[in-house]
Simulated scan of single mutants.
Amino acid sequence: MQYPKSERFNSRQLMAGGVVLLSFGLLLDLHSLPSFLSKRTSGELCQEVVQSQTKLSRQQLARLLTVPEGDKKQKVQEILKDPYCKLVDLQVRVGATAQREAYQLEFEPQTWLVVLYEGDQYAGYRFNIR
């Protein structure tokens, strides 16, 4: 049994429309994942607020950039002082638990500095735009 051309054309349109809707739905679903949210990223919620008034100055940031990775945690903490908050610990490497502290930048309030420590060693930093 053969269908008229107009019905086959409509079924193709229906199929194309369904694919577009499915793609759009998947795109929206991906944006609802925590890693795509601007104010919250996976594992980036404060576990404990230490000093809610803390803001990191340009001078403190510049001094931090002179500290090599692997240096003592105490040296970094002397420069940065108390963090805004401590983030949830995570395991970066097998057998090594990393602690993270977050600091809001005084000169760029939407940007936070997240400092990573492994035990008593400074392991690095990254910026988080919220």
Rank of each mutant, 00 (worst) to 15 (best):
S42W: 09
A62T: 07
V76N: 06
E48R: 01
F24Q: 09
S42E: 08
L21A: 14
P68K: 11
A16R: 15
P4F: 03
R40M: 02
Q110G: 08
R58H: 04
S32P: 04
V19M: 11
T54L: 07
P4C: 05
A96E: 07
A102R: 15
P83F: 10
P109V: 05
D29I: 01
P83R: 06
S42K: 11
V94P: 06
D120H: 11
L28T: 00
E48P: 00
A16F: 15
L90K: 12
A96V: 14
F107T: 15
V88N: 12
C85G: 09
L21M: 14
L56A: 01
V49L: 01
Q53C: 07
Y117F: 13
G70Q: 12
L33M: 05
Y3E: 12
P68G: 04
E44D: 11
Q59D: 06
V94T: 12
V114L: 12
Q74H: 08
K72S: 10
Q47H: 00
S42M: 08
Y122L: 02
I79K: 12
F9D: 05
S6K: 06
E118T: 03
V76Q: 06
L90A: 11
V20G: 06
R93Y: 14
L105Y: 10
G25Q: 13
I129W: 08
G95M: 12
G17R: 01
A96W: 10
E118Y: 03
S57R: 02
L22E: 11
W112P: 06
E106H: 02
Q74D: 07
Q99E: 14
I129H: 11
E69I: 15
